[in-house]
């Protein structure tokens, strides 16, 4: 990994080329479990974003102090701390949204994506780079959640962000829990297909 990364590069990597949900296929549990509305996606996205950014920055700040032998425990402690904080904050100020997300906010502590960024990026790079990388990853997660949430909310309940867009409920199926698997699976396939088509076109031009 080179040291010189532009901010846009760091951001776009998290959102597009290394999107945690569609590309890296990490942190799938909430993507399936509570992606029934855009709001849920946004809320959990914010929580993850917060935890990712704060943890990355924290680790990046203290990277010289952390003994390599206790690297993993330090990550866990850092993440757990920030998750606790966001958990408490959400519970206090957004009780409604918090109740909808249930156990998943607390489970951010076990998200592979966060630990992975700490291990692969934050513990080696500058604080500012780590920050932007974390922002990219957090946004990438949020974008993924929002896309899935928008799809399911629109087709499941005919609404977007709670506003009635279609005026009727097309297919209850999409807001059912089991539909999460189908939607994520179909979306992943869709992105794969786009990629293939794009590459073919590129190949045809070249």
């Amino acid at each position: 990994m080179t040291n010189d990364k532009s901010i846009s590069e760091l951001l776009s990597r998290g959102i597009l080329s290394e999107n945690p949900i569609f590309k890296l296929a990490l942190s799938m549990c909430p993507a399936v479990g509570i992606s029934t509305t855009v709001m849920n996606g946004v809320m959990l996205g914010i929580a993850v974003f917060f935890v990712q950014v704060f943890s990355s920055v924290t680790i990046s700040l203290f990277k010289n102090v952390i003994h390599p032998r206790i690297r993993i425990p330090s990550y866990t402690l850092t993440i757990a701390t920030w998750v606790t904080v966001i958990d408490l904050v959400l519970a206090a100020y957004m009780p409604g949204a918090y109740a909808k997300m249930g156990i998943f906010v607390k489970l951010i502590v076990a998200f592979a994506i966060i630990t992975m960024r700490l291990e692969m990026f934050a513990c080696k790079e500058k604080v500012s780079d780590s920050f932007w990388d974390a922002v990219g990853m957090g946004l990438g997660f949020m974008v993924g959640m929002v896309v899935i949430g928008a799809f399911r909310e629109l087709f499941g309940s005919g609404m977007i962000l709670g506003y009635d867009v279609l005026g009727y409920k097309p297919l209850l199926f999409f807001i059912l829990p089991s539909a999460g698997f189908f939607v994520v699976g179909l979306m992943m396939a869709f992105f794969n297909w786009i990629e293939v088509v794009y590459k073919q076109k590129k190949g045809a031009k070249a």
């Binding site: 296929a25 399936v32 698997f181 699976g185 992943m188 396939a189 869709f190 794969n192 293939v196």
Partner: peptide
Amino acid sequence: PSFKGLPMAFI
């Protein structure tokens, strides 16, 4: 082909 791997596992 586009369903190979994870997408199919999800389905």
